[in-house]
Structure formats: structure tokens, C-alpha cells
Design a protein around this nucleic acid. Structure first.
Lengths: 393, 393
DNA sequence: GTGAAAGCGCTAACAT
DNA sequence: ATGTTAGCGCTTTCAC
């Protein structure tokens, strides 16, 4: 509350410019200009170093500036490597920064630049090795380009995925890389990124409804090759444990499976195509459902390796011989696949590469800026790794 | 109350210097500079939405305020659920927020609050399942408490670890959970957190030199039990593939190994204690070194499961029968351990629990504030999972 | 080559 | 119950 220096009143006070760094006030009643005298006699010039070195304080450019008796702007410019700063000044600043343990406040920088240099990544889980491996690849590229990565797990829940998108928006990430949950069928929550000009790149579990770049493997060909391989090895009654029908990946792997059967004039048996929700437990149940009946298939093509591994374990548990009685092929080349016995035949995909490529594309989009790029698909090749689970001796 | 000379609005006005003794103002909406004219002009109440709805713009509280013709503060308070806000106003604000797709800018909030509600986690890698599992646990607890998590991989490199600490500091995380690299022996880079009052909690690979809380398992007992189990099962020439000597964990597991041998009056053979750098390749080499000579051990206790798995694979490759010719025990209960054949006997540790506990302790420390808490250790129990790799039929 | 000042979006102390 | 103001730490005109 400001009082007039003459009449002591508060009601007729307005601000009136600034003199020597102090706010000047004007009392309309008294027609008098005045400033607020400092409470203590100490002039603000003598900078109290204790303030900056109080426990926990992280030095700011202001601390550096005061210590060197120069301005914030100069410090800022020196630290950024601005060209028109005297070499001598720059050195002094850099040294003082080191001395004061200065660490730039990215929050402030990001706020003023409207750029966080942070990429959000949303993955359904990281229990299995697939997503961690993608993240490692993505993080490598991001790091090289000076970007940080904010990792979110949706835990295969759309609710969590929505919360993740909000968290990323609130953190003002510059871009997003996402592989959706198995249950995502409405994509409205992802449109906020579109609306705000934040580029998205989908990978693995992609989305047709949103105009964004996508990176995935040729699921159709991979599946086709896997099933054809089973056929060539003499399997005739081939079943399929498919993924959630909402995922493009499931649809394409299913299509590859069906086409391979058709092309080789093998019958398609609806009872032998079952849907798997991608949980470990359900994979076991699927295996049970397929392998229990008397009239059971002689081979199973699984939508991914975790499912194939559970199937293999189930068969072993039940004493069903693999590959003699039943052949099994998975998808992904999980590290476990080469360790389990019999070793699992699988469709290998370039996992870490997928993360790298997704990140490269995203950074490109960010660089170009909203509306200045066109989304595109990158389809990576797969290769069939033939091991023991699908080859009768 | 100052209104823009052009649009008549009050909310987009800021001061902009002084001209001829008059305060100059600036309207952000109209991008117009003006001073107060002697006569009050006409003002219009219709707020030009185009400014706020230009493509890419993320609504701020100012947009909400303008749309409702109230002040920023009221919006801020309404959004925070402040008690002394008229119910009607709050509803209007919340609705407008939804309508404008408002998402609070955490950068700004964190900047002003000096609190980011973000926890940094540094782990050496996440190729193996151990660290991802810890992170999942930690993230669960953090999420419940309204905290986000920033994950860094040091890739077992001190250089990267240092970069990680700087990144976390720059992001002004409220606390740090860390498991060090295998080569970290100087801890100066971690002291910045100490200096700035940012609490750290170590887990698994901990550090004595820094006063911070630590969470780890009883490595000594786990190792002792594992080796004793081998002895009880008739193994007499027991080797040890140990971890990097700098890690407390390696030391304690080694000590447990040695004490078990001593207690059972078995000889300690220096050639049978070799150090492993925790890479996959090196594990294989260690196995080779131990199992190649004529006079080879009849059992190996490995510092962790990845090493034990490589050892087992090596033995299989060389046709050395496990557990008949050589018994193997690991540490961690990696998912692969129950799948590989023969199944691996291992010392199980509560992995996800470790992450949860570390996070709970850290949040507690953060809550209490610098100097208001004392660091302490939490030692979790292990349990021996006896499988096939260590039991002769 | 350097400084002054505005402003990024928000909260909070202080006024009404 | 609501508005005004001053920062949080930084970058970036603009002025000299």
C-alpha cells in the first residue's frame, strides 16, 4: 500500500514513471511526485553474496553478472557463445559460471524460447524387451541432436494413455513418439498434438486416422514368410494366435497368414484363429485353447514372441513335442527366443532401428515446423530367423 | 484499469517505458503502443478470439481470463481449486478451460514454484530386465504422488553419468534415484545434488561416500545362501564370477561366497575367483576361462543372472553337463532364468519393490526438505529359488 | 560490445 | 471474491 509522502493518503496515488530504478508515484491531491525511500540505508549496489550462497541456492546468470559487475544480458550472450562479446569477458563469465557451479535453468530457457528440446515417448509397457530396445535407439538419436526424452508407460490402458498425453502437453514437449495401447480405438486424445502443431510419429502400433508419420515393419510380408516357411516344412494345419483386432499390425499379420494359406491351397479354419490380448496369462490360455482338443493344429504362428514363448512353454508342460507334433513361429526376435529350447523360429524386426528412424523423422518434422512437412510412412523389412521350433528333424 | 486504445481490452496491457513523462502501454493483442489520452475513449467488450486461436497456440490462463473478462489471478485460483472463488466463476473458468483446450504450462508453474514435481532416475542400462522393472515400480509410486519421472541411461559410462546429472540439474528435478555405472569410483559429480539440497536415493549399486539413503538387498546373505546350497548339494570346487570390484554389491556377494566356503572348510582358490565387467561378451569369456582348463571347478556362483545365463549357455555349447558336471547359481531371478534349460537356480530379489521403496523414501526426503531428514539404509531380504542348474539328480 | 527492459505463463502477496 | 503487481530465470529486441 502506497501512501503519499505529503498527505499520507492512498486514494489519489498513481504511478508516474521510473526514476533511477525506482518506481515514481504521483499524488493527484497534492500534485506531488515522490518515490519510496529505501527501508535500510544500504544501497542496492553492494551485492550480498550470502544471498547467492545460501544453502541450496543454484546460481543464476544474475549471480554471475553481479559477481563480475556486468549485466545479465552479457552473461547470457557470453554463455550462448554470441559472436560480439569480448573474448576476455566471455572467459571471465565462463570461469565464474564454473566457479559458482552454474547450471542453466532449462525451465526458464524453454519458457522464453517456447521450445523445450524434449521429446515425449509413450509406450504401452516395458516389461518385454521390445519397447526398451526401441527407446534406447530413439534416445541415442535424440541425445546426439541435443534433445531429451520423457518416457511414459501407458500400461496398455487408454485412461493412462490420455493422462500421458496431457502430461506431455503440459511439459510442452516439442514432439511425440508413440506406440498405442492394445485398446486404443478412439484417437481424440492424440489430436491435441495436431491442434497445437506438435508433430507425432507413430511406430509399431500405428494409427491410420491421424495424419502423422509412421514407422513399422512389413508385417504382412513377415507373416507371409513365416507361414510359408511352416508350410514348406510340411505343416498343414496351421493356427494363428493373433493380436488385438484394433491394431493394424494384427490385421496385417493375420492377412499375411491367411494369404499364405490360400496361396498354398491350405484350408482356413476359423477355430484356429484366435485373438490374444497380449498379456502373458492370455497367451497361455490361447495356447491351451488351441492345443487341448483332440483335433489340434500341427503348427501355430503367433503374433509376437512373448505369445510364442508362452505357447512353447505350454506345449512343453503338456509334453507336446515341438517341432515334431507342433511347429511354432513367433514375431520380433526377443532375446529369450534364442535361449529357450527348442529355440524359437521368429520374424526378426529391426527394433532399435525403428526407434532411431522414428526419432530422426520426428526431429525433421520439428525442424521444418508446423504445416511445412508432409507425413509419410517408413516400412522396414523383416527377416525370418529359422531356428528349431519349426523344423522337423 | 487501463484499456487498450484500439481494442478496449484490459488484459493484454503491459507497461512499455515512459514517453514525455507519460506511462506508455502496450497491448499484446493489437500490438499497439499508446499512452492514456486525456478523454476516455469508447471501448468494446467483444474479445477478438482470432488472436488466441491462431494455429498452434496453446491457451493460457490469460486466454481464459480474456474470454470471460476476468483477471488472470481469478482464473489461476479457480483452476487450483482455491476456496474463496465463487462457484459460478469456477464453473465458468473450468468450462472455458475445457473449451479452449487449456493445458497448464508446467514450465511456468515450476519456474515460479521452484518445484518441478519431477524425479530423475539414472540407471546404467535397460537392456536387461532388472532396471526396467525397478523403474516400473518407482514410476508407480511417483505417479500416485503426482510426480513425473525423467529417466536417464548412463550406459555404464561415467561420462554419460556426469552428463545425466547435469541434465537433471538443468531440469531442476526435485530428487534423484540412481544406480551407478560399474566404473563410477569418483562421486564428485553427484555432490552437486547435495550442494543444492536435492535429495538422492541410491539403489542396488550404492555409494558409501555420499550421505544419502540407500536401498539394496542383503547381498551377503543371498550369496552365502547360494553358495551354501551348492555345498549342501555336494559341490566342492566352487568358483565365483564376481562383479566390478568397485561396487559394494560385488564386494558383499564375494564376501558371502568366501564365508560360505570358509564356514564349510572348503578351499578358496584364487584362480576360481574372476572379475566380470557386466557385459554379455565378458561373461562368456569368464565362463570360458573357468571351464576350459582340465582342472576346472564343479560349480560357479555368478554375481548376477545375465552372467549365469551366459555361463550356462557356454557350458551347453561345450557339452559340459549342468548340473551334473558343473552347478550354476545366479542372482536376481531374471525372467530368462526360469525358461532356460536347465532352469537356473538364483537368488531372488524384490526388484520392483526396490524401485517402489526408493521412490517412497525419496518423496519423504523431498517433503521434509533439506537438512530436515537423516539418510538411512533399507536392506531387503533375498530368497533362494532352487531350480535345476544346481541340483544333481 | 554492453546494458536496460520487456516478456514467456504462471503463482502469490497484497490490495480492495 | 476479485483485481493488481511483482517476480521465477532466461532470451531478445532496442538503444547507445
Amino acid at each position: 500500500m502506497i501512501r503519499c509522502s505529503k498527505c499520507g493518503q492512498v486514494h489519489a496515488i498513481t504511478k508516474s514513471g521510473v526514476v533511477r530504478g525506482k518506481q515514481r508515484y504521483y499524488c493527484k491531491d497534492c500534485r506531488v511526485y515522490f518515490t519510496i525511500p529505501p527501508v535500510t540505508g544500504i544501497h542496492s549496489d553492494d551485492y550480498d553474496k550470502t544471498a547467492a550462497s545460501r544453502p541450496g541456492h543454484i546460481a543464476t546468470i544474475l549471480d554471475i553478472a553481479r559477481a563480475l559487475n556486468i549485466s545479465k544480458s552479457t552473461v547470457s550472450r557470453a554463455l550462448q557463445g554470441h559472436t560480439d562479446i569480448k573474448e576476455e569477458t566471455r572467459e571471465a563469465v565462463v570461469n565464474m559460471a564454473r566457479q559458482l557451479d552454474y547450471q542453466p535453468n532449462l525451465l526458464a530457457k524453454s519458457l522464453v524460447r517456447s521450445k523445450t528440446n524434449t521429446i515425449g515417448i509413450i509406450v504401452p509397457e516395458f516389461v518385454n524387451s521390445f519397447f526398451p530396445t526401441v527407446i534406447i535407439g530413439a534416445q541415442e538419436i535424440a541425445g546426439e541432436a541435443g534433445y531429451n526424452v520423457l518416457i511414459c508407460q501407458s500400461q496398455e490402458s487408454v485412461r493412462t494413455e490420455i493422462a500421458n498425453t496431457q502430461a506431455l502437453l503440459a511439459s510442452r514437449v516439442d514432439g511425440v513418439i508413440i506406440s498405442m495401447t492394445r485398446e486404443t480405438s478412439n484417437f481424440d486424445h492424440l489430436r491435441v498434438f495436431e491442434r497445437h502443431g506438435i508433430p507425432i510419429v507413430f511406430f509399431n502400433r500405428t494409427c491410420e486416422q491421424i495424419a502423422a508419420s509412421r514407422v513399422f515393419v512389413n508385417d504382412y510380408e513377415g507373416a507371409f514368410a513365416a507361414v510359408e516357411h511352416l508350410i514348406v516344412n510340411g505343416y498343414k494345419k496351421i493356427a494363428h494366435i493373433g493380436g488385438p483386432s484394433g491394431l493394424r499390425l494384427s490385421q496385417n499379420r493375420l492377412k499375411g497368414y491367411l494369404d499364405a494359406l490360400k496361396q498354398h491351397r491350405l484350408p482356413v479354419n476359423d477355430k484356429w484363429i484366435i485373438q490374444h490380448d497380449l498379456t502373458k496369462e492370455n497367451a497361455w490360455n490361447c495356447a491351451e485353447k488351441l492345443l487341448s482338443p483332440q483335433k489340434r493344429p500341427d503348427a501355430i504362428f503367433c503374433v509376437n514372441d512373448p505369445a510364442a514363448i508362452q505357447t512353447l512353454l505350454y506345449a512343453k508342460r503338456k509334453g507336446i513335442k515341438v517341432p515334431e507334433e507342433v511347429g511354432i513361429v513367433g514375431f520380433s526376435d526377443d532375446p529369450i527366443s534364442s535361449i529357450i529350447e527348442p529355440q524359437l523360429t521368429t520374424v526378426k524386426q529391426p527394433v532399435s532401428e525403428m526407434g532411431k528412424i522414428a526419432m530422426r523423422i520426428l526431429l525433421e518434422h520439428i525442424e521444418k515446423g508446423m504445416g511445412q512437412y508432409s507425413p509419410f510412412d517408413t516400412i522396414l523389412p523383416t527377416s525370418l530367423i529359422i531356428r528349431q521350433s519349426s523344423v522337423r528333424k
